[in-house]
Amino acid sequence: MRIAFVSNVVYPYVTGGAEKRIYEIGRRLAREGHDVTVYGRHYWDGPRETTLEGMTLRAVSDRRDLYTDDRRSIPEAIEFAIDTLRPLRRNHDEHDAFVASTFPYFPVFSAALARLRTDTPLITTWHEVWLDYWNDYLGRLAFGGKTVERLTAAVPQHPIAVSENTADRLARIGPSRKSISVVPNGIDYDFVRGVDPAEPGYDVLFVGRLIEDKRVNLLLRAFDRVAPEYDLTLGVIGDGPEADRLTRLAQSLDASDRIDFLGFVEDHDDVLAQMQAARVFASPSTREGFGITAVEAMAAGCTVVAADHPESAVDEVIGDAGLLVDPTTEGVRAGLERALSGYQPATEPVDRARRFDWDTVAKEALDRYGDAIDG
Rank of each mutant, 00 (worst) to 15 (best):
H95N: 06
H95S: 05
H95I: 05
D96E: 11
D96Q: 04
D96F: 03
D96K: 03
D96G: 10
D96W: 00
D96Y: 05
A97W: 00
A97K: 02
A97P: 01
A97I: 13
A97T: 13
F98W: 13
F98Y: 15
F98C: 02
F98R: 01
F98E: 02
V99A: 04
V99F: 10
V99D: 08
V99R: 02
V99L: 07
A100N: 09
A100K: 03
S101H: 06
S101Y: 07
S101V: 14
S101T: 15
S101C: 10
S101M: 14
T102C: 14
T102A: 12
F103Q: 13
F103H: 14
F103N: 11
F103C: 05
F103K: 02
F103P: 00
F103T: 13
P104Q: 09
P104M: 09
P104R: 03
P104K: 03
P104F: 10
P104G: 09
Y105H: 15
F106H: 08
F106A: 11
F106W: 14
F106C: 05
F106Q: 04
P107Y: 06
P107C: 09
P107D: 09
P107N: 08
P107L: 08
V108W: 08
V108K: 03
V108D: 11
F109R: 03
F109P: 02
S110T: 12
S110P: 10
S110Q: 07
S110W: 05
A111M: 05
A111W: 01
A111C: 08
A111H: 02
A112V: 05
A112Y: 13
A112Q: 12
A112G: 11
A112R: 13
A114P: 05
A114G: 11
A114V: 07
A114C: 12
A114T: 05
R115S: 14
R115N: 12
L116C: 10
L116N: 06
L116W: 13
L116R: 15
L116A: 13
R117S: 12
R117Q: 11
R117W: 13
T118G: 11
T118K: 09
T118Y: 09
T118H: 10
D119V: 00
D119L: 01
D119G: 13
D119S: 15
D119R: 15
T120W: 12
T120G: 12
T120K: 08
P121L: 09
P121Q: 10
L122V: 08
L122K: 02
L122Y: 02
I123Q: 05
I123G: 03
I123H: 05
I123S: 03
I123T: 04
T124W: 02
T124N: 04
T124S: 07
T124F: 04
T125R: 08
T125V: 15
T125I: 14
W126E: 03
W126G: 01
W126R: 03
H127C: 02
H127W: 03
E128F: 08
E128D: 13
E128P: 00
V129A: 06
V129C: 06
V129N: 00
V129Y: 01
V129T: 12
W130Q: 08
W130V: 01
W130Y: 14
W130I: 03
L131V: 07
L131R: 11
L131G: 01
